[in-house]
Simulated scan of single mutants.
Amino acid sequence: MLYVPILKCKQGEKDALYTLRDSVKDQVVPLLEITPDVGGKGNFNGVEDFWKDRPFFLDVSPEYRQELSDEEYYKLIEKCTKQQTIPVIKLADSEKKITKLISEYPKGVALRLYIHEILDDDFELIYDEFSAKLDLPNTDLIIDAQHVESSKINEASFLIKGALNLIEGIGEYRNVIFSSNSFPETLQVDKHELSVIPRIETNLFEKVKPHFSKKKVNLIYSDYAINHWSFFEFIPGMQPSFNIRYTTEDFYVVYKGDTVKKGGLKIEKVKEGCIILVTSPYFKGQGYSWGDKEIHEKATGETTRPGSLTTWRAIGTNHHVTFIVNLLSNQA
């Protein structure tokens, strides 16, 4: 396991995973979050159609977890193959739920801790009691910093260092995974040109890695791909814009077009954005990933299919996961 992308379990992200090369899939164990608009509408049917015979973490988004009873949660997770599923547990989960998941899922479980939880005054007492219920060598630990501003990377690293000292026995876990997120909640960028947004997840990971190394922990990289960590609820009347999200080592390169209502997804407007990206120094080439091939074909006119907003989430996510695996492989 080289990389743990945290992805909403929605069609765009599912298509992105399905179209990855096998050599990339082999390095990835995704953490899939079921959101209210999927689980609440009965649209979650497991992962076999897009992530077959491969391990994955399964969680529900924070917003949805508050609504779910344990019984409703069991009905969701039972749609997945137990041999490949690693359920994600939280400090607020009941002992009954934890015992059931540990006993029924052969790949063990993952404990997900948010930085703000670890820094809470009562954390050590709660954690000591909670961790005593776990088989740590068969449990993965996910430390999630959620959103970190690019201007606060040093502050975040300092807080994470302090948080680590509060986690007793961290070296006993099977794997320790560190996740952060710097993609903005809304795209406040100019239209019809490329904009760059600092991508700090890799830099923050490198900053905190020595803190973990001192604890004899080999850290695994995680992020939220090309999405903000929170759940975005689409409300009727909203006017989403066509946009391309493209990951580079230091930036998220973004092209924002017109709203869908103003024809943003017409092929001529999509092609315009693709040409700007393909002719820029950021583009990796059509052979880099399935997503890059799609962008290139739309730029050159090889296809006249503009795709939907879901298609463009798949294209950007597929490129991102491929890029991060290649980046981490080269660093290793």
Rank of each mutant, 00 (worst) to 15 (best):
W229A: 02
I324G: 09
K90H: 12
V29D: 02
S182H: 00
I89M: 02
A332G: 14
V325K: 15
E272G: 07
I235L: 06
Y252L: 05
T85P: 02
P36W: 01
L166W: 04
H147Y: 13
G237S: 05
G301N: 14
G12E: 05
A332C: 12
S150A: 10
I200H: 01
K107S: 08
N318Q: 13
K41I: 06
L194N: 10
R54Q: 15
K214Y: 14
E104C: 04
S103N: 13
E71C: 03
R21W: 07
N330V: 02
K90L: 05
F178A: 00
W312S: 10
S195E: 10
T19Q: 09
K90M: 07
G237I: 00
K298A: 05
P210M: 06
G237D: 00
P137L: 13
L204Q: 03
S131W: 01
I167K: 05
T310I: 15
S241W: 06
T304Q: 15
N227V: 09
R54F: 11
V176P: 01
Q146E: 13
I235T: 07
V270C: 09
S289E: 06
T304R: 15
P236I: 02
P106E: 10
K269L: 15
A163S: 12
Q286T: 00
L134Q: 11
P240Q: 10
F323G: 01
N318P: 03
E294M: 04
D53A: 14
N326L: 04
G257Q: 11
K152V: 02
Y105V: 02
P210L: 04
A110K: 00
Y64Q: 05
G39H: 06
G257Y: 10
V217R: 00
N45G: 04
K82W: 09
N326S: 15
D144E: 11
F231M: 06
I200D: 03
Y127S: 09
I77V: 12
N43E: 15
L141P: 00
F242C: 08
K298W: 12
G162H: 15
I226P: 00
D93G: 06
N227E: 09
F231A: 00
A332W: 09
E168K: 08
L31G: 01
V270S: 09
F232L: 12
P5D: 08
I220M: 01
V253R: 05
L277W: 04
I177Q: 01
E272H: 14
K97G: 08
V325C: 11
K75S: 09
